[in-house]
């Protein structure tokens, strides 16, 4: 009960390349567990954070992703920032598959985020793209 009442903010900075995205969702799941989210909610957050990161690397590639996780009452807020947008390596090239790239489906991502979190959004200013989500913890704690 008391885990989420104090100030708790975790920040992660990773290269904006596909092999590092798993670290974002793993960290998010660990933070959610620490904040007493239940198993199903943690599973939802792992996927939602992954989709959030995909939103950030889709289109114009960035150089780094900066992701923060913060509990505000019963709500976990996750904010991701892609910095150096346009300066990184496109996902298709990272996968070594120029011309036959993996299609990042923003439509599927949006549907997943709609279903798994309470709020989410994205915006872009200058060379920084931002995406965020909020998910409330249920009253039934783990």
């Amino acid at each position: 009960m008391t885990a989420a009442t104090g100030p708790s903010r975790v920040e992660l900075s990773i290269p904006a390349t596909v092999e590092w995205l798993a670290l974002a969702r793993t960290t998010g799941a660990a933070v959610a567990a620490r904040l007493s989210f239940n198993y199903d909610e943690i599973t939802d957050l792992r996927l939602a954070i992954d989709e959030l990161c995909l939103t950030l690397v889709e289109g114009a590639p960035a150089t780094r992703l900066e992701i923060s996780f913060e509990a505000v009452g019963d709500v976990l807020e996750v904010e991701g920032r892609a910095v150096g947008v346009g300066l990184g390596t496109p996902v298709a090239l990272q996968n070594g598959q120029a011309g036959a790239d993996i299609v990042l489906s923003s439509d599927l991502s949006a549907r997943i985020l709609d279903a798994l979190v309470d709020e989410h959004g994205a915006d872009e200013a200058g060379d920084t793209r931002r995406a965020w989500l909020r998910k409330q913890r249920s009253t039934e704690h783990a």
Binding site: R25, L47, E51, L54, I102, V103, S105
Partner: peptide, 13 residues
């Protein structure tokens, strides 16, 4: 153990 929208895109293709 985990599957995201890129996996779904590959399966749909």
């Amino acid at each position: 153990t985990f599957l995201d929208s890129t996996a779904l895109g590959v399966l749909v293709s």
